[in-house]
Amino acid sequence: MQLPSQEYNQSITEYYPLYRGGSVESTIILPPSNFSRNFEKETSIFLKKLNDIEQLKSLYIFENSEEIKRFLLSHDYLIDCLSEAYDQIRGIFEENLIEICLEYDRDSEEDFEGLFVTIKTNLSPEPSLDLLEKFDDNWWLQVDFKIRSLITIMVRPV
């Protein structure tokens, strides 16, 4: 094996968001330029889907990461909606937003599986619910029913 040092151009970082799979839990914050390069350049349909799922981990706290990722792989039309939902939630809850959690749940008796988005806010219950109602009216209720039937959005004052 030969690895001439002057010819060693490290490029593995370009792959970081694509292949991080399995159960490794870590958050690596890359500068904005890295993200931009990544999403603009990926022309593989297959890898872009994996990449986009990884990007969602920068927006949401994944409660059960492997299950969420698997569900999103088979329901990839939810990915864009979840990124848009993050933007909408931030716009409405503004500085009162603490974090947004995402959880996969399955109820075999009810024949239901889907994702639960929990908006954690520092507001008391009443104004929290007012903002959730505003979120519903401004955006969520216009989202395709097929998507809304798989994602439940809740607010939790903490």
Partner: peptide, 22 residues
């Protein structure tokens, strides 16, 4: 395409992820 950039919040102290569209 969308990407996520981490930018300072309004107070200038808290870093919050923001969506950027390509």
């Amino acid at each position: 395409g969308f990407g996520v950039a981490v930018k300072p919040g309004k107070a200038g102290m808290v870093l919050k992820p923001e969506i950027e569209f390509g």
